[in-house]
Measured scan of single mutants.
Amino acid sequence: LAALHAEGPLAGLPVTRSDARVLIFNEWEERKKSEPWLRLDMSDKAIFRRYPHLR
């Protein structure tokens, strides 16, 4: 499970980098069924690119 911001401008976004990794992994797991070539990237760089508020 990932903790998400409940309200405000960040509502629905992950609270920590660990939470972001959970979301990225879950999405990758779903997408790899139809796109088996996808690589999993959970590096800090990938997290910041996707969720800049975690910098």
Rank of each mutant, 00 (worst) to 15 (best):
R55D: 09
M42N: 06
K33T: 10
R17L: 15
P14Q: 00
T16D: 07
M42Q: 07
D19Y: 04
A46E: 15
L23D: 02
F25S: 04
W28A: 01
G8N: 04
G8V: 05
A11S: 10
I24K: 00
A46I: 08
H53I: 01
P36L: 05
K32V: 15
E35F: 09
R49S: 14
A20E: 01
E29H: 14
R21F: 05
E29N: 15
F48S: 10
L13G: 02
H53N: 03
W28Y: 11
R21I: 08
L54S: 00
A2P: 13
K33I: 13
K45I: 10
L10N: 09
R31I: 04
A2G: 07
K32A: 10
R21E: 08
A20I: 01
I24M: 13
W37G: 12
F25W: 11
L13T: 03
E35I: 08
V15S: 03
D44K: 08
F25H: 08
L38F: 15
H5L: 05
K32F: 09
E30Q: 14
P36M: 05
K32R: 14
N26H: 14
D41C: 08
N26V: 11
D19W: 04
G8H: 05
S43A: 03
A2K: 05
H5K: 11
R50E: 05
R21V: 07
T16K: 07
A2R: 04
P52S: 03
V22M: 13
E29C: 15
V22D: 03
Y51Q: 00
G12L: 05
T16V: 01
V15D: 02
L4M: 09
N26L: 15
L1F: 13
D19E: 06
K32P: 02
K33V: 12
H5N: 06
E29A: 14
R17S: 12
E35G: 03
H53Y: 08
A2D: 06
R55N: 10
H53D: 01
F48I: 10
H5C: 07
P14I: 01
R31P: 02
L13N: 03
F25Q: 07
P9S: 10
E7R: 08
L1D: 10
R55L: 13
K32D: 02
L4V: 14
P14K: 01
L40E: 02
E27Y: 05
D41G: 02
L38A: 14
S43G: 07
L1M: 14
I24A: 02
E30N: 11
L10V: 05
P14H: 01
P36S: 06
S34K: 14
L40Q: 02
P36Q: 07
E7K: 10
D19P: 01
S34E: 12
F25V: 06
A3Y: 13
K32H: 13
W37D: 11
T16E: 06
H53W: 03
R21L: 11
G12M: 06
E29M: 15
L38V: 11
L23V: 10
A2H: 07
Y51N: 01
A46N: 10
W37T: 11
H53F: 03
N26Q: 14
A6Y: 10
E29R: 15
R55T: 09
F25T: 04
P9K: 09
E7G: 11
L4G: 04
A6C: 12
R17M: 15
L1H: 13
H5E: 03
F48Q: 06
P52Y: 02
P14L: 01
L38N: 06
K32W: 08
